[in-house]
């Protein structure tokens, strides 16, 4: 069993928290993991990506090869499209629908939606709105993770456990809000598959 995941977003949107959650769940299950991320220059409002690889066998490369990612998890819709060359033919694109507009030439939102819909396996989720509904607007990244959770080859309970580990320091309330966000995303995904 091997899962190759591309995480995409804009600096500061929380893709590293998604990576840490999946990574923690993988480690708690004694799986091998490699997670490569972008630091430094690209953090200043630029696009960021992380390659996350999980396997029950040792992993060679830190980078995922072209056309071989099982899933792209995007917290921003245009950023999800940026990494399509990595996606395998039967891979999933799970993406937030709320754009992050910090450039003047940001494309038309409807055009982006059309592009996403032209991909065979996709889930578009309005994670920002859903997070707001449960008064957890900072947890939209975890809503997206929830929506991606059916495709990770990791049990949902293990992701929940990882959320507890990751947010433990911040107190019970934050843990619960993120557990709720995760579940909300998951339930939405199940209606879309």
């Amino acid at each position: 069993m091997k899962t190759d995941i591309i995480l995409a977003g804009v600096g500061g949107q929380g893709i590293l928290t998604i990576a840490a959650t999946i990574g923690t769940a993988a480690l708690q299950n004694n799986l091998h993991i490699k997670q490569s991320e972008v630091h430094g220059m690209s953090q200043r409002g630029g696009d960021v990506q992380s390659h996350l690889r999980i396997s029950d066998k040792p992993i060679a490369s830190d980078l995922i090869g072209n056309g071989s990612a099982d899933i792209i998890i995007a917290v921003e819709p245009m950023e999800g499209l940026r990494y399509l060359p990595f996606l395998s033919k039967n891979g999933w694109l799970v993406t937030n629908s709320t754009p992050f507009i910090n450039i003047s030439n940001y494309p038309d939102n409807q055009d982006i939606t059309n592009e996403i819909k032209s991909i065979k396996n996709h889930i578009i989720i309005d994670a920002d709105a859903m997070a707001k509904e449960i008064k957890a607007s900072r947890s939209s990244n975890i809503v997206v993770l929830g929506a991606a959770s059916p495709f990770l080859n990791i049990k949902f309970e293990d992701l929940e456990k990882a959320i507890r580990t990751i947010f433990e320091r911040k107190g019970e309330e934050i843990v619960n809000i993120n557990l709720k966000a995760l579940k909300l995303g998951r339930e939405f995904a199940e209606t879309q598959m």
Binding site: S42, R44, N66, L81, R82, L84, P85, I103, N105, P107
Partner: peptide
């Protein structure tokens, strides 16, 4: 090398700022 999907043309660069 397998053929891969292209980056859709509408995807704009997002340089650091």
């Amino acid at each position: 090398q397998e053929e891969t999907q292209n980056i859709p043309e509408l995807v704009a660069g997002r340089p650091p700022a």
